[in-house]
Structure formats: C-alpha cells, structure tokens
C-alpha cells in the first residue's frame, strides 16, 4: 500500500469512526462541527473540479451554494405554510421531502451556473475572476432585497427535511448522510476526471488554444464543467440549509467564495481529496483559534500569504508525496 492509498484509507476511516468516538468521548458537538466540515468539503470539491482540473478561477462559487440553500428553505417554507410559490404561469406548491427539494436545489443552482457561466466564459483571466465575483454579488444583493424571505436577516427552516427513511433531526444520522453525499460526489468526480470529458477539461486548463486547434469546441466543455461544479455546490447548499436550519444572504457573500477557494488551495488544488483536507483544516483552525483569540483572522491572513508563496502543493501534496496529481 503506498502513501497515497494509505492516507485516503486512513482519512475515510477517521470520518466513519468520528461520530461514534465523539459520542463516547462525551463531545457530541463534534458531530455537528464535522457535518459542517463535510458539507463545506463537498462545496470545495465541486469548486476544485472547475478550478483545479478545468483551470477556471471563479470567485463566485458561493452563489451556487447559497442558491441551493435558499431553494430548500423557500420551498419548505411554502410547504409548511401550505401556500403556493407561484400562481402563474402554473400553480407550484412547496414541499418538505429532501427527495424532492435537494434535486430541485441541484437543478436550480445548475441552471444559474449555466446562465452565469455562459456569460462569464466569454472572457478569461482577470476578467473572468472579476465577473464571477460580480455575478455572485448581484445574487447576494438580490436575496438581500427579497423581503418576502427575510431580506438581509435571512429565513429559518421550520424543521429539517424528511429524507426517505433517514431521520435528519438526528445529528448522527445527518452526519452519515452528509458523509454519503460527499463520498458519492467524490466517486462521481473521480470517474469524471478520468473520463473523456475529464481529459478535455484538463486539456483546456493546460492549453485551450491547442484544444481548439485539435478540434474541440472548448467553450461547451468548459461551460458544462462550470454547470457541474455549480450543481455540486447547490447540493452542498441544500445540506447546509438543513444543518443550520437557517439561510441568509451571507451564505453567498463573496468572502464565502474566497473561503471555499482557500480550502481548495490549502488542501491541494487539482486533487480530489485535497479540498476535503483543506475544508477540514480551515474549519478546525477557525474553531480552535477562535477559542484562544477572537482576532484569529489576523493570523490566518498572513498564514494564507505564506501558503501561497511557499507551499503551493497543499496538505494533500505533503501527505501523498510526489506525483499525487489527479488522485
């Protein structure tokens, strides 16, 4: 067993065993904390698909995260109230079941990604970064202005969704559901980056001009990659809405996009497990630094600069050793 498989197996084992250990150790709040970590890891993996593999530096990924969360909250708000969301052009009611709400969250954030991506991908480089950022802020202000759903203050979820036979109000069961969602998305991503499609987006990252001259309509492939990433973030958003039982525009603020980006870089860009490590490291750091000082960001900022300047390969690079790309 090489270092890479060893690290992955060990990590997976830790995540599986964690809730049991936490409860036995009398620290059940860890289960909640780690649910959050898993959800952010999912968002970070989805960003890494387009950033690390597709070479698209988006600073607006939290927009899709937020859309996913809002879809769940708004639909279940109407589901509980029994009021329709739309009366025209067709009657549309709310819902309570995660089996309906979560796919809806994925679908809608994917659709938003298709629109935003189609416009942003006309540009590249610095323009692309600024435009994705501007779009996410536009959505942020849109939700701030939505008084019907709490505006600036956000909106609470009456209760967690129902989901097949799983009891989401049980933190332990919720944790394992998040873990399953992350594992499924990781497996999907693993197949994706090694598929024909994955080869194409990796090629686009390295040399888009050559990809075109080989005969690939690169815009379409990059757009689909953008949509897949957005949909993944939407799923993470649906989960976070259930985890915190509350959604506010703050979820899609651009600094949130920045944080997700930091997770990807910290863990290791262009690897699948790197973002999981990055999310874990960043959120744990936040959690524990904030015990000692409320001003932990004053340390995190310079730390980040040092990582950028000196440790670009991220934690996963350190753990898995050389040649760990595309794992």
């Amino acid at each position: 067993m090489n270092r890479k498989t060893l690290s992955i197996t060990l990590g997976a084992g830790l995540f599986i065993a964690l809730p049991v250990v936490a409860v036995m150790a009398g620290e059940p709040y860890l289960v909640t904390l780690f649910s959050r970590i898993l959800i952010y890891a999912l968002a970070a993996v989805s960003l890494d698909l387009m950033l690390g593999f597709g070479g698209m530096v988006s600073l607006g990924h939290a927009a899709f995260f937020g859309i996913g969360a809002y879809v769940v909250c708004i639909l279940s708000f109407h589901g509980c109230e029994g009021t329709p969301i739309l009366t025209w052009p067709f009657q549309l009611g709310g819902h309570q079941s995660g089996l309906v709400l979560w796919p809806a969250a994925v679908l809608l954030s994917g659709t938003a990604a298709a629109v935003i991506g189609a416009l942003s991908l006309r540009t590249s480089g610095m323009h692309f970064i600024m435009i994705t950022l501007a779009f996410s802020q536009m959505l942020y202000y849109f939700f701030v202005s939505l008084e019907a759903y709490g505006g600036d203050d956000g909106i609470s979820l009456f209760s967690r969704n129902t989901f097949a036979g799983v009891d989401l109000t049980n933190d332990m069961q919720f944790y394992y559901l998040c873990l399953a969602a992350l594992a499924a998305f990781l497996f999907f991503s693993y197949r994706l980056v090694h598929s024909r499609f994955g080869m194409v987006i990796r090629g686009c990252k390295e040399n888009e001009r050559r990809m075109k001259s080989l005969g690939f309509p690169t815009f379409r492939y990059r757009l689909v990659c953008f949509v897949i990433a957005g949909a993944g973030a939407g799923l993470a958003g649906a989960l976070i809405a259930n985890q915190t039982e509350y959604v506010s525009p703050g979820l899609m603020h651009w600094t949130r996009s920045g944080e997700i980006l930091v997770m990807v870089l910290l863990g290791g860009m262009g690897t699948l497990f790197g973002p999981v490590l990055g999310a874990t490291a960043l959120l744990l750091m936040e959690e524990f630094l904030s015990i000692y000082t409320e001003h932990w960001m004053v340390y995190l900022g310079p730390f980040l600069i040092l990582v950028v300047l000196f440790a670009k390969r991220g934690i996963y690079g350190l753990l898995a050793g050389e040649n760990s790309n595309h794992g």
């Binding site: 197949r191 598929s195 080869m199 194409v200 090629g203 990809m211 080989l214 005969g215 690939f216």
Partner: peptide
Amino acid sequence: FSLAIQAHEGHSFRFWKRAA
C-alpha cells in the same frame, strides 16, 4: 495522443467511462 484522437472520434460528453 489520446486527446488528439478523441477530438476526431465523436463528442466527449462522456462522463463516466475511463478515457484510457
């Protein structure tokens, strides 16, 4: 080389099967 060949062998919206 496989990318170069892939470009001329149908579309690449295939997300699951290993290209290799």
